[in-house]
Simulated scan of single mutants.
Amino acid sequence: MDATSARQRLEQMLAELDRSIGVLRGDPVAVRERSAADSGSDLSDADRAQAMLTVATAHRRAVLDALKRLDEGDYGRCVDCATPVPEGRLEARPEAARCVQCQGKRERRR
């Protein structure tokens, strides 16, 4: 994925995550935007909302880290082994920081 496309996708993801985080936190502007766009059920379960907020915040951090790697010229290289991250992986997950092998090792350690 070229740098321009990666930056556009990452910035779009960041904007979407910021809106989602705003809704989950109860930001009145974000809630109004959500209400206008989606008349789905309210987030009434505080535990579920907190879990979703935690995931969205972690995903936001990954997107910001990817933008930083892009700015530093390290985007597309695994942060653990420095090998190129496969193009298909970056297409599917533009924020991916690791190659499939290193990501698998990281997940097995958890």
Rank of each mutant, 00 (worst) to 15 (best):
residue 13 M to L: 06
residue 68 K to H: 15
residue 32 R to L: 08
residue 33 E to D: 15
residue 16 E to G: 15
residue 72 E to I: 03
residue 68 K to S: 14
residue 1 M to G: 14
residue 35 S to M: 09
residue 15 A to Q: 15
residue 56 A to V: 08
residue 94 P to V: 07
residue 49 A to E: 02
residue 30 A to H: 13
residue 78 C to T: 00
residue 64 L to E: 11
residue 47 D to A: 13
residue 69 R to W: 13
residue 29 V to S: 14
residue 90 L to F: 06
residue 15 A to F: 14
residue 47 D to I: 07
residue 6 A to W: 12
residue 30 A to Q: 11
residue 83 T to Y: 00
residue 59 H to F: 02
residue 101 Q to A: 14
residue 79 V to P: 00
residue 70 L to A: 04
residue 108 R to S: 14
residue 59 H to D: 09
residue 60 R to I: 01
residue 33 E to A: 13
residue 25 R to C: 13
residue 53 L to D: 00
residue 75 Y to P: 02
residue 7 R to W: 10
residue 95 E to A: 06
residue 63 V to R: 01
residue 63 V to W: 05
residue 72 E to R: 02
residue 24 L to H: 11
residue 56 A to R: 01
residue 103 Q to R: 05
residue 107 E to H: 03
residue 74 D to F: 06
residue 71 D to G: 09
residue 80 D to I: 07
residue 95 E to D: 05
residue 15 A to L: 11
residue 4 T to S: 11
residue 42 D to R: 10
residue 61 R to P: 06
residue 95 E to R: 02
residue 52 M to T: 06
residue 25 R to F: 10
residue 69 R to Q: 11
residue 27 D to C: 09
residue 61 R to Y: 08
residue 88 G to V: 04
residue 92 A to Y: 10
residue 45 D to F: 10
residue 103 Q to W: 00
residue 73 G to A: 00
residue 85 V to Q: 00
residue 102 C to T: 07
residue 76 G to Y: 02
residue 44 S to K: 05
residue 43 L to I: 07
residue 47 D to S: 12
residue 110 R to W: 12
residue 25 R to G: 15
residue 71 D to P: 11
